[in-house]
Design a protein around this nucleic acid. Structure first.
Lengths: 196, 196
DNA sequence: TTCATTTTAGATCGATCGCTATAAAACATG
DNA sequence: CATGTTTTATAGCGATCGATCTAAAATGAA
């Protein structure tokens, strides 16, 4: 019994996410957001609360649309090595297509230090990626060598480090060869752990 | 034959660097800077030009004071492995003492995408770190195994990735165990490359 | 149709942004 | 000491910040 909204919530959220993703939190003004979302400032505040609240929505959308999708694909891959390979291939393709980097990593740098609640969410999300790599490693047959140089947890963390560095360098404008080299090493970490 | 400055240039530059380091470029206002430097806005603009120019000075100071000092210490170490160990130990200590992360990595995320000139400087500086690791690896005796799983360049890049990820996670509030685990893997990369 | 409710659009709030104009204060030189 | 030059402090520029107010437009329920 009231006037319905004229905009589609998911699509305007995607537009807002894109702004935060490209420009960062501080450098994105509410007017930038409203413009990109093609709604007025009043509608923005009415539908999503303040700027921080809108950002939180956007981060949720990002995690569900991108981060967790990649992890789920890794989990559902028949061959964990090929799954890791696909994970990094996807990352490289996305990183070279545009230079926004990863909203999660971007937020870890800019937002986490000033927002303990979002910091916890960000830390947990990074941990999800690490755990995804860890599960992939655990699915591999034990290595042929007498012992592994690193355990699965340390290897998973190093693979996460490759992902983070890849995203940082991509956003900073690193050349494709550099990015591909790191991605290749990320896959090699899993192969080496397996014992090959 | 004019009135001399009442402030010490290096010390006020250090104060400005600290602001940019902790809060980032966008979130630091010129008034924040002037306050931290204990000078007036007019003096700031008179001595350092505009905000971007001051930032550039601060980044230079950071590179000379922190980044290049660590690389020089790595180069001058008798045992490259111990040098790498000391490099990461230093990083861990600094990362746990405060949560500012690394001004170079912070700037790679926030500044590089919008300032191609600074982006080039940042890329070159990251490359200096990578090259430092590469020189350390090249100084090691060849591995005992028939061939290395990765070449020295790829290993150096993976070590740089560990550094970057360490800094990102430190700024995002990652716990000490996580950081130390990555640092340990960074050292282990050099040890594995050597063949031990 | 009437009414209650919500969403729109536009103007605007006080605060702060990067930056600069003005003029007094402080020195080195002649 | 007088002069010229630079730095200082203060005030304020126009623009933009996040956020909100008012009122018209648009709907479903009665």
């Amino acid at each position: 019994m009231a006037r319905p909204r004229t905009f589609d919530q998911p699509s305007v959220l995607a537009a807002a996410m894109d702004q935060f993703w490209r420009r960062g939190y501080e450098a994105t003004s509410v007017r930038d957001l409203a413009g990109a979302m093609s709604i007025t400032g009043a509608s923005l505040y009415n539908a999503f609360g303040d700027k921080r609240s809108l950002f939180r929505h956007c981060l949720d959308v990002y995690l569900n649309t991108y981060a967790r999708r990649r992890i789920a694909e890794l989990d559902s891959s028949d061959d964990p090595i090929r799954g890791v390979q696909a994970f990094f291939d996807d990352l490289i393709e996305a990183s070279l297509k545009d230079r926004r980097g990863c909203l999660l990593v971007n937020s870890a740098m800019e937002v986490a230090p000033w927002d303990s609640e979002l910091a916890a969410l960000i830390q947990a999300s990074l941990r999800e990626i690490e755990d995804g790599f860890h599960r992939a490693l655990e699915r591999l047959p034990s290595g042929t060598g007498p012992q592994h140089p690193r355990d699965a947890r340390a290897t998973a963390r190093l693979m996460l480090s490759a992902v983070i560095a890849l995203r940082v360098l991509a956003r900073a404008g690193g050349d494709g060869d550099r990015l591909r080299s790191i991605a290749m090493s990320g896959v090699a970490l899993a192969e080496d752990w397996q014992g090959r």
